[in-house]
């Protein structure tokens, strides 16, 4: 059996005294597209952020391609990896944020090139060509010399996705990538994500776009109170929810 791209086992996470993840198990194979849905505070974003250790986790295992993220077991104790190791592991996955988080002092193409040059040690001219290619893929090649402040939200998000994808991650994490966008800009970003999904990219998404989650995912995970409430193929979850909580959530989400 092949090693799963992502394997989360019994994941626990606390913010102070509040336990926000109460034992999550989730496995993703290569090419899977999994959407996390649920009301705010249910732990979706925290779960996503544990995968690349933007949040530390207290218990359980997050493994990307069989490698535990952030920690190792030593003589039965759990030890945090060195900073450099964690940085390497983070680059195995790519992430797009709700607020894009482009580097404001760099043009679009330099945003995409930075990780290639500094982390992947790609020569500059190769990095430039690759970055240009990815910007073209997200429809932003003509804007490559523009700075983030000169771009619309949708355009910034597409550059941010190109920046993440250019690193050739084994898994892409999308954290509510359309939540901060004006309604008319949502579709251009979703089109890019859909395009990547159809290309076989392994993706874990947190989204409030139910129709999109329905269309793009193999598996939809409904989170409630820090646990997985229900998971399955989109047809089953959206059209045949087992729990009342999910049914109510979908009704409120106007699906």
């Amino acid at each position: 059996m092949t090693i799963p791209v992502l394997e989360i086992t019994n994941l626990h996470k606390k913010f102070g005294e509040v336990e926000v993840l109460k034992g999550i198990d989730l496995t993703m194979q290569s090419g899977n597209v999994v959407s996390l849905i649920g009301s705010s505070g249910s732990g979706k974003t925290t779960l996503l952020r544990c995968v690349n250790l933007l949040e530390d986790y207290e218990d359980g295992v997050v493994a990307v391609e069989g490698e535990q993220i952030g920690y190792k077991q030593h003589k039965g104790r759990r030890i945090r990896l060195k900073e450099r190791e964690i940085a390497r592991q983070r680059a195995m996955t790519g992430m797009a944020f709700q607020h894009f988080n482009l580097f404001p002092h760099m043009s679009a193409i330099h945003n995409v090139m930075l990780g290639l040059i500094k982390t992947r040690k790609t020569p500059k001219d190769e990095a430039y060509a690759a970055a240009e290619g990815w910007l073209d893929r997200v429809g932003m090649k003509n804007w490559k010399d523009h700075y983030p402040g000169q771009l619309s939200g949708g355009q910034q998000q597409r550059v941010a996705i190109a920046r993440a994808i250019a690193m050739n991650p084994v898994l892409m994490l999308f954290d509510e990538v359309t939540s901060a966008l004006d309604p008319e800009l949502v579709s251009e970003v979703l089109a890019v994500v859909k395009d990547l999904a159809s290309d076989g990219m392994t993706m874990l998404l947190v989204t409030h776009e139910m129709q999109f989650a329905h269309d793009v995912s193999d598996t939809v995970v409904f989170m409630q109170d820090g646990r997985i409430g229900e998971q399955g193929p989109p047809e089953q979850l959206f059209h045949n929810p087992k729990s009342e909580r999910l049914a109510a959530f979908l009704k409120n989400s106007k699906f």
């Binding site: 690349n52 940085a87 996955t93 482009l102 930075l114």
Partner: peptide, 29 residues
């Protein structure tokens, strides 16, 4: 914005290099 540092980390930079390449140049301006 805190996301700036996080974006640096997600492209595989260490905390230190994120400071040097991103946080400090933006803050300085």
């Amino acid at each position: 914005p805190p996301g700036l540092r996080e974006a640096g980390l997600t492209v595989g930079l260490t905390e230190f290099r994120t400071k040097i390449l991103i946080t400090i140049p933006v803050m300085f301006r």
